[in-house]
Design a protein around this nucleic acid. Sequence first.
DNA 1: CTAGATTGCCTAATCCAGTTAGGCAAGCGC
DNA 2: GCGCTTGCCTAACTGGATTAGGCAATCTAG
Lengths: 191, 191
Amino acid sequence: MTRVRVGLTTERVVRAGAELADEIGFDRVTPTELARRCGVKTASLYAHIKNLQDLRTRIALSALEELADLAAAAMAGRAGKDALVAFADVCRDYARQHPGRYAATQLRLDADTAAASAALRHSLMLRAILRGYDLTEPDQTHAVRLLGSIIHGYISLEAAGSFSHSTPATQDTWTWTLDRLDALLRNRPTP
Amino acid sequence: MTRVRVGLTTERVVRAGAELADEIGFDRVTPTELARRCGVKTASLYAHIKNLQDLRTRIALSALEELADLAAAAMAGRAGKDALVAFADVCRDYARQHPGRYAATQLRLDADTAAASAALRHSLMLRAILRGYDLTEPDQTHAVRLLGSIIHGYISLEAAGSFSHSTPATQDTWTWTLDRLDALLRNRPTP
DNA sequence: CTAGATTGCCTAATCCAGTTAGGCAAGCGC
DNA sequence: GCGCTTGCCTAACTGGATTAGGCAATCTAG
């Protein structure tokens, strides 16, 4: 019985979990499935992760980091609408290319974990986008929330297939939406 | 051993499941928990539901119906911004009062089930709202998707607690958002 | 090169949730 | 009161999450 050492580490397990999530869905990532994919018995995973919840949290945190890195890179050197479109496109592309990881970013984290996560970077980037528009508090906070709502809402509905049975291409709606959103932010507050 | 007949039916089981979802979360609704709540052994539920997936699907469908009924009632006799605000408020209130049921409405349904669900009524109501604005295709479809994205995105983020650690009250952001959305829909397409 | 320490991965076992099969009795119609 | 229907039960199976403990593959020292 030649026993082969795959050489797992926590990082590799989490990475494999993220890939698995993209293939079969984040909520179907389970120790059993992940072990199968890693070519290892289920119990062996527990040397690297504490339990299922720990695994999911780690995948979520790594996805948040990854998305934040991508967004930061795309936004570098851009401002105003350019920055807005760059950020939104990165989020949407990420969700389309890595649906499981994107789903992971929506995992409900406890307060401490969330505070130490890359979620803070995301909100800072939203703030940064709005620096290109002429907004003062409290409008700026309202706008941060609106931005988050539209981007997340659109991506969720598109991923759920809510748009797939209508005629205009979703890409058209996406650019239309960002155009309108940009105009909305540029215009003075309504009277 | 006096055996008591609770008198379950599929409808009552689903109703109890919806209430349980609001209390402990939709994804924690499970035959075991639901049986406990109904005062019945787990196996007894299977006379009324096929399995866990069937239970979840039924809860989702009933929530979609319930929300559609509420929305239709709130929108009756209203048009334009009044209709928009009425519809959006109903969705938000429903999500706050019945978080588990709202989560259920986001359950991924297979094509046949979705087609026979109240989801169609929801999209028709969104179309109805837009009749109060001067939009032609393809702008109208874009606007339907934008409406859905904002409402769903905002509610999701608010439910996830994403807004709970900032200062302006979420109610202010909500009315601000609907004001801006109304203005966006009223204004001519950007040059 | 080899002995010992480390530790990655295994087997074995436990617990618990989802699910099925079959039995009993509570309430129905007569 | 008699039988039929059927709501609910007990008993049993399956499969996944998790833990404990053992063995062997690799690393390090000398």
